[in-house]
Design a protein around this nucleic acid. Structure first.
Lengths: 232, 232
DNA sequence: CGCTATGTTGATCCATATCAATAAGTGTGG
DNA sequence: CCACACTTATTGATATGGATCAACATAGCG
């Protein structure tokens, strides 16, 4: 592990409040690995051996069933993933693979559970994190069940726009085929949805998005704090 | 509050391991109410004032957006709901209403957070509960994104069959229109899906389900532990 | 520079929603 | 206990969102 890795991990909400002793105990058994792109880090169904911390690069969480596959989430540095499986000592429900060359810290699940038993602040942080994860998946479900694919795309663009500091021109942060899967549609259908947004003041050229009429776009997409907000 | 309510609450996983003192502190500020059917208990967007415990009857968690509504989950006694909003002190993401005449215990969110600060066992239990809730919503999302409505229905029936002690004949535990909304389809489409399952050895008459050919049904529905299992 | 993966477009098919009409329950008050 | 009103369930006809198949364009990348 690099010296610079440790403070970065320590800064994460999940670890920032725990005692030095607990943190040291957690880091002691950790190890780091650099992975090339397109490498499977985790396979759904496997026992949750490690809590993963993505230090650099990017990864995707996906799930499959009966030959179909869907993108559940993308992970960007610095953040942890698959906390719930680690906590419950259950099987992973999602698979994970790197998208780019990525650096990952692996914390053995048993160490995480030990730290959680011994350190109340860490337990607190875990509760906060899990509650947030839960709420974010509930929002996803509402998004899927209550909106058409065009509405999901429109809202995704508004969220990206806000994420980019409310810039009217910004880049898609993933390939369109991944975006399509994330939004629960096919790549072909995404292409058409992109064209269908033109009358609402959206121009997408390659990875560049330009919003020319925010009123019309918002009238279509009707963003809601209870579906689209990051925090809360 | 009835005398009999308290031990029932105490028996829940969430409360069974906490100290007597913490539990008493939690119960002290609690109050109970009996509600008629079809009463709104919680409205999405409102601040999370209480952790709810359903003692008897039944309730549904639903969400709406832009005039559409969808059933997210049904709650049966004895269990808690809307824990995550309470913990994060955020707005409710789902609304709740009674289905039948129901008895509900309300625990003020501030008391829950206080108990959680002071009682490590309670914090432990909350972590376990939240991790389970999270995983169950992830399974829902996989179900929605990876399966057609017919496959979702087929798998729902197998889950109900297992829930009924593997009986080949059992009752639907909710109205068909609610089931349709829960499965993310219209009532009309559910009617047709029910007929479409007949060749696979499923007979549904009113609320009574009879499975006559489990092999065919399983061949269609391909149940997966990573989507359909209750526990894990 | 050429290969391969990604993206676009068009034609068609299928799943699911919508609209409409009817039937079957369910609950209520006389 | 029945008659009425109202909700729920079913069925048919049709429309539409979205998937699939196929062809082609394009962009990365070795």
């Amino acid at each position: 592990m690099r010296d610079s890795d440790i403070p970065e991990i320590r800064k994460l909400d999940l670890f920032s409040e725990m005692s030095d002793a607990s943190f040291a105990g957690l880091i002691r058994g950790a190890y780091v690995q650099d992975f090339p792109p397109q490498i499977d880090l985790v396979t759904e169904g496997d026992p949750a051996g490690f809590l993963h911390v993505l230090m650099s690069g990017s990864a995707e969480l996906y799930a499959d069933w009966n030959g179909r596959e869907t993108l559940m989430a993308t992970v960007r540095p610095v953040s942890t993933f698959i906390l719930a499986a680690t906590i419950r000592d259950g099987p992973y429900l999602m698979s994970a693979r790197t998208i780019e060359k990525s650096r990952v810290v692996l914390l053995p699940s048993t160490d995480v559970r030990t730290a959680f038993e011994q350190d109340h602040e860490f337990a607190r942080a875990i509760v906060g994190e899990l509650a947030m994860c839960y709420r974010s998946v509930v929002k996803d479900t509402k998004n899927l069940k209550l909106r058409t694919s065009l509405e999901r795309l429109a809202n995704y663009l508004i969220r990206s726009h806000l994420h980019a500091g409310a810039a009217l021109e910004f880049d898609l942060l993933m390939e369109k085929r991944r975006l399509a899967s994330f939004l629960g549609m096919t790549p072909e259908n995404l292409s058409r949805a992109i064209k269908a947004l033109r009358p609402y003041g959206v121009r997408i050229d390659g990875a560049t998005v330009r919003i020319t009429n925010m009123e019309d776009l918002k009238a279509l997409s009707k963003p809601s704090a209870l579906i689209d907000d990051y925090a809360t």
